[in-house]
């Protein structure tokens, strides 16, 4: 199985690099693996994800995603790489002036699918996250948990190769959480999608084998 993500002596920091968030982290994630990342608030979980989709450059060490070194990747290649990712943000990052249905199919729109395909896919995806009746509403007309599920549906829209999820169930009750976990398990199992999930609570009922990383005191450690 091939490496999807390979970090070696990775150091991440904001601004001029004086304050390190992650220091000297090395790990490898292979295709089709399911990974949970936990750690205290402010430890750098979101920061690590940000580096994985190329929004934050490593100050030291190297980070290779999908075979591309993110330090030297060209703009066009990064676009291509991102188009294969399904990203779920902690703060949702929905586009508020678009309807829920349009938000969900953003990845399909970027890939250039026809509006008919976008429409049918929007309906299918919203059904999966139990939001069918909200298709024509705008994000700000939804509850926090509903917005979060729109974000999840959007991330799954184009059957991504990698899912990067930041607290995808942070605002959800157990029932809705399980709906999300099921979707991700299915993606991982049926499509061999690599899934990285930042969460403060690993689900108790989880049928797939998974790996677990903890971020603490700037380090990234695997729990065995």
């Amino acid at each position: 199985m091939s490496n999807v993500i390979h970090a070696s002596h990775l150091t991440l920091s904001y601004g001029s690099g004086d304050k390190e968030i992650i220091k000297d982290a090395s790990f490898t994630i292979k295709k089709g693996e399911f990974v949970f990342i936990t750690g205290p608030s402010g430890s750098g979980k979101s920061t690590l994800l940000k580096s994985l989709y190329g929004q934050l450059q490593a100050t030291e060490g190297s980070l290779v995603v999908g075979g591309h070194d993110l330090a030297t990747i060209r703009k066009g290649k990064l676009q291509e790489l991102r188009a294969h990712m399904g990203i779920i943000f902690q703060d949702y990052k929905l586009i508020n002036e678009w309807t829920v249905a349009k938000n969900v199919v953003l990845p399909l729109m970027i890939a250039g699918y026809s509006t008919e395909i976008q429409d049918t896919q929007a309906r299918r995806l919203l059904k999966h996250v139990k939001l069918s009746e909200h298709a024509d509403k705008y994000p700000l007309e939804l509850s926090g948990g509903e917005q979060q599920r729109v974000g999840v549906a959007r991330a799954l829209a184009k059957n991504p190769v990698v899912i990067l999820a930041d607290e995808p169930t942070g605002n959800l009750d157990d029932y809705s959480s399980n709906v999300i976990w099921d979707l991700m398990e299915n993606a991982c199992q049926q499509l061999e999608t690599t899934v990285l999930v930042v969460t403060h609570k690993i689900p108790t009922i989880f049928s797939l084998p998974y790996r677990h990383f903890i971020i603490e005191s700037k380090g990234v450690y695997e729990v065995h």
Binding site: Q55, Q79, L81, K93, L94, I95, E97, L106, P107, I110
Partner: peptide, 12 residues
Amino acid sequence: ERMQVMEIFGAP
């Protein structure tokens, strides 16, 4: 904001 979100999802 919208342009950033679209960029993260790989929009040209």
